[in-house]
Each structure stands twice: as structure tokens, then as C-alpha cells.
Design a protein around this nucleic acid. Structure first.
Lengths: 150, 150
DNA sequence: ATTTGTGTGCAATTTTATTGCACTCTTTGT
DNA sequence: ACAAAGAGTGCAATAAAATTGCACACAAAT
């Protein structure tokens, strides 16, 4: 992981659709040498994957919401059961077990409030071990960055 | 946005490093026709960008934390000022203005607790208009999905 | 000094991306 | 109903990029 690798990773995190030839020139390497570095970065797992990021609005998920969840029973198996339940939901894009005031935090991407309502039914009511939950609807997204600064 | 477009988007959201030829075959189109669809999806902004997702641990950001922030002054300009401050921080990967108990939620990716400490100094103390903040350190990431289900 | 391992550039080859073209199908206007 | 226009497709030729073998350079270890 030298300076050139970091440079490549920064480029890729911003735009991974560029050609190898193009990036090779930018970092000052031959295309073949650059390609070997890229393959190594993927193989060693520094690069987890290359993906397309869609425009949520254009993809039909207009609403974002954060939900903090407090469980009734806090045992490992109860925690896991709830996380499994949440993870299986399409509308749940992030799910974390956390320290602090609550046990779980979820990030939702929703089509509309009906979907929210239905989701609450499945995750938070009935017999799902949830003591309390607080929903924060996202008004403005100031930053939503996939890149990690190196 | 027909069935084939959706199929392509789903493929790309999972793995955008595949070749056009490869995907063309999977969706049952000729490479040229498939390429034209991909270009259209990018041009119209359905595909926002293609990026590399790094392994946070291997990239040196081991800790994740969520912070809910309550501001003292809630005016538009105050909100904006705080969000600008937060957005400028490398360790802040997501920043949202939200409804509910708090005003702002931040997602942090940290190298260590020293970085957290320094960040708190810059964002939450001094004269930064923060009334209160609660930090939830992520214990387990059950889901962290960039894809949007179509 | 020799060996070993890692990284590099060059050049040849294979694979992909890209483009022009003719064709089909659907929609729109007359 | 019929012609025109628009959108999308496959094919084939061409341009560009990825991939690989090879010889060389450099550094660390023996």
C-alpha cells in the first residue's frame, strides 16, 4: 500500500468507470503495471466491490428515515433475531447494533409512507421484542459518501 | 425503464466491474444494444456514478459511530452552518437534517478514539451551536447496502 | 556476491467497446 | 387505412482497452 496504491484507490472511489489506461497515465504507470496493482487491490480485499450508485429519487425511493430501536430483551439471540428480521427488509439499507441509548439503528429508504407503515407493522409491532422506537425522517441529506479518505 | 433496464441496474448495483459483453448475454441483448442502454441510464442520471467500495477495516477506518445532535438555535442559517462544518470533516460519511427528537444525525468512520475526541472538539464544543449530542458506537454492522431494490 | 522476491515497461495477442448501417415495430398524424 | 417519425435492435467493421509473456531493475535476505 504505497502512495500509488492510495492514489488509485482515491480515483476508484470517486469514479470506477474510468479505463485502466486512463488511470495508469494519471498515476504515472504503464497500463500493464497499473492493472496488476488494481487486481492485487481487489484480490487482497482492500477493494471490496465495484458498484453502480443509483439516484434514489429516480429509482423510486424518495424517502429516507432513521429509526432507533430499543429492544425488550437484550440477549445475543434476541438481538440477532431482530437484526435478521430487519436485514431481510428491502427498505432497510443499513442496520447496526450500537452502544448508547438504544440497541439498534436502521436506515430506511422508502417509496412512500404506506411502505413505512407496513414496515413498522412487520418490525415493531406484534411480538417482535421491540420496547420502543423513534423515527427520524430525513429532511436534507448534506452528505452521503461511500468513499473512505486515505 | 422496462424490465431489461431494471435487470441491468440490479446487476450493476451488485457488480459494476463486469463487461458489457457479459451482461448483454445475461439480459439477452446484443453487446451494442446493451451498451446503448447503459449509456442512456448514465446520461439520464438513473445511474449516479460507478465507484469502488473499500473494505473499511483494510482502509484503516475501524470504528463506526452514529451521533445525534440537538442544536441550540434552529434557524435555517444555523442548521446550514453546522451541516457545512460537519460535511467538511473527513470522518463524517453521512450527515442528515432530520425530524424528530434531534436535528442532525451523523455517521462517522473513525481510525481510533483519538480521532473521535478531536472531532468532538471541532464539532460539538466551543461555539458550535450544539445543545446536546449522543454518540452510539456501532458494535455490529448487520447490513450496509448501497443497492436500491427495483 | 548471489539469490530471491517484487515491481516495472514493452510488445504481441485477445477481448471489449464503439460506431455506422439497415431492419423491425410502435406510435402519431393525415 | 396509410405514410412518416421515433425508438430500439442485431450485425459487422473498427478502434480502444485489457491481458499476458518476457526481460530487466531494484531491494532485502542469505
Amino acid at each position: 500500500m504505497d502512495r500509488i496504491d492510495k492514489k488509485l484507490l482515491n480515483l476508484l472511489q470517486r469514479d470506477a468507470s474510468r479505463t485502466n489506461v486512463d488511470m495508469a497515465e494519471e498515476v504515472g504507470l504503464s497500463p500493464s503495471s497499473c492493472l496488476r496493482r488494481l487486481r492485487r487491490l481487489r484480490k487482497t480485499g482492500v477493494i471490496d466491490r465495484i458498484v453502480a450508485i443509483l439516484n434514489p429519487a429516480r429509482a423510486g425511493r424518495v424517502l429516507k428515515a432513521l429509526v432507533t430501536v430499543e429492544l425488550k430483551l437484550h440477549g445475543e439471540q434476541h438481538m440477532r433475531r431482530f437484526l435478521d428480521l430487519a436485514t431481510a427488509e428491502e427498505a432497510v439499507s443499513q442496520a447496526y447494533a450500537v452502544t448508547g441509548e438504544t440497541d439498534v439503528v436502521l436506515m430506511l429508504r422508502l417509496r412512500d409512507m404506506d411502505e413505512y407503515d407496513a414496515l413498522c407493522d412487520r418490525l415493531f409491532r406484534d411480538r417482535t421484542n421491540v420496547a420502543r422506537f423513534f423515527t427520524m425522517v430525513v429532511i436534507r441529506t448534506a452528505k452521503d459518501e461511500t468513499a473512505i479518505q486515505l
